[in-house]
Amino acid sequence: MVRATVVGSYPRVDDSFDGQRLRRAIARREKGEISREELRTAEVSVVQEVVREQSELGVDVATDGQVTWHDALSHFAAKLDGFEITGLVRYFDTNTYYRQPRRIGSVRWRGAITVDDWKAAAAASPVPVKAVVTGPYTLAELSANGSGRDAVRELAVALGQEVRALVAAGARHVQIDEPALVHSKALPRGYAEAADLLLAGKGSAETSLFTYFGGVAPILRDLLELPFDVLGLDLVQGSDTLAALRTVDANRGVAFGLVDARNTKLEDSRRVAEQVLGFEDRVPLERSYVAPSNGLEYLPRGKAREKVRVLVAAAKAVREAL
């Protein structure tokens, strides 16, 4: 059955006073006014709020909203051996910035990075919570001094231990984010091997590979050879992938990123459902998802909610049509 999911991030504040408690807690922690534990309490309360909100809106597979992440790169690199964190760099074509990791030695996994947040989310969520891990290629490409096949392989081993830890903690869905793949004309050499290393400890969890901020038409066939159960596609900024998807027989589920997560204009859920149904003969829809085009944190909270309503309604319409 087609399900509704999100891609990862979810707005961590809203315009109300209470809705900005995490923002205030971080500011107060920076001034030394509250303890690490008090900040953690605020973080957990927002993680649990966003996961409940997603399930109330009808999302079938939620995420922790990445509400404790500064950004998708430094959140992992800061806790791996082999990186230092440097200055701000623009994140793809967004008007946001990430703290750039710089590779300074061998990369090694020291211990769980995202497991506590996943557990906090899962404890509060009536629906399954998908764990999200930034992929080895994106982490290597967006770091300084650290790209190339060997770096990707080393990162795949380290992040594979994170995947193993998430599955051991109980995660049944694991998403790997590789937005940097949208700039590739060909699948990076050695990526298939890296994917095997990354997923070595996945057990029976459902795995997905997500790309966004553009299309993947030139590498779509290669992506469908990789050992992931679901392929997540940005079909808004990457609308050119739609045509490519019509030429393949997808042997796995697709997360149809048809709801624009970078603009507030609302889609018509029936139109989204029609687009998904158009792939009935190409994609096994019973293993697929309706999703936003990328993480929802580029939208204000209220609009993010409305976008989720659209994709939930679209998923429902697809199920009814089938």
């Binding site: 707005p11 701000l88 990430y98 507030t264 209220g302």
Partner: peptide, 17 residues
């Protein structure tokens, strides 16, 4: 003007619509 959107880190701003 939109609701708050994160810029980076702990910074937020309102975007025109």
């Amino acid at each position: 003007i939109s609701g708050l959107v994160r810029s980076y880190g702990n910074r937020y701003y309102k975007k025109p619509v």
